[in-house]
């Protein structure tokens, strides 16, 4: 039985008057990849963003309930959001490398957090992170080139490397492959599988096959509610809820 890295209890999220998430309770495993699936607008991305408090940046967004990271309430007043986000990294739907060099993209996080004492330590962090993201061999000769000059799939792996460079405990991925072609997608999925175990990974995906391929646990969201959560194999072969069944058999979505 895997231990829980994060756990959410009775989480409600509001955008102004509108409620986007209703009473969601869920545990995220340390060693597994957890997939959030559901039709668009079901709240899966919103919920993902509550896990590292990225919703704080949205004007008018309000979160209720309790979310813990290793038993600490991340919405508690003594929780430092800057350190929280260093521990819970995030990769976005569209690759968003900074308009800086590849090297500087990776070095950005370690630099602001002061994780490398000197240049050679920073070189090491950059190289290790690029290795882990499977990008090293492709970019090792062009580290000073702009990160925006890479292909879409490479940019997304650069963003993953950027998140890894801070050495987070959890990595949140918000539909990381939706803007990529199938070959790039396959590479990212392969990478997720390789990163599993080092980091707790939560991935939001629109693509059920992807969830089946990369995740061990799957949560199905519908209309802001968590409908069903369990082992991926069970969700896809033997769902307990009719709504889940309707969705995975393609009745709506």
């Amino acid at each position: 039985m895997a231990s829980h890295k994060m756990s959410a209890r009775d989480v409600n999220v509001f955008y102004g008057e509108k409620q986007a998430i209703r009473n969601v309770s869920i545990d995220v495993d340390k060693e597994n990849v957890t997939a959030f699936i559901g039709p668009s607008g079901c709240g899966k991305s919103t919920f993902l963003r509550t896990l590292n408090r990225m919703n704080d940046t949205v004007v008018g967004c309000r979160t209720e309930g309790r979310i813990e990271l290793d038993g600490e309430d991340i919405y508690a007043s003594e929780m430092d959001v800057v350190l929280l986000r260093a521990r819970v990294g995030m990769v976005f739907q569209k690759p968003n490398p900074f308009p800086k060099s590849i090297y500087e993209n990776i070095a950005y996080g370690p630099r602001i957090h002061g994780l490398a004492e000197n240049k050679s330590a920073m070189d090491h962090v950059v190289e290790t992170s690029l290795h882990r993201a499977g990008l090293w061999n492709e970019v090792k000769d062009r580290l000073q080139e702009s990160g925006t000059a890479l292909s879409g799939g490479q940019q997304q792996r650069l963003c993953i490397a950027r998140a890894i460079a801070v050495d987070p405990e959890v990595i949140l991925m918000d539909e990381p492959c939706s803007a990529l072609d199938p070959i790039a997608t396959a590479k990212i999925e392969e990478l997720i599988t390789e990163l599993r175990g080092r980091f707790a990974i939560v991935i939001v995906t629109h693509n059920m096959q992807q969830a089946a391929r990369v995740s061990q646990r799957t949560a199905f969201f519908h209309l802001g509610e968590l409908v069903e959560y369990g082992a991926t194999a069970d969700i896809f072969t033997n769902p307990t809820q009719t709504r889940t069944q309707d969705y995975i058999t393609g009745r709506y979505g």
Binding site: N52, M54, T57, V82, L83, L84, R85, A86, R87, G89, M90, F92, N96, P97, F98, Y108, G109, I112, H113, C159, R162, A163, V166
Partner: peptide, 9 residues
Amino acid sequence: DGSLALGAT
């Protein structure tokens, strides 16, 4: 968002 998600102020 990319920068904030890395823990930048």
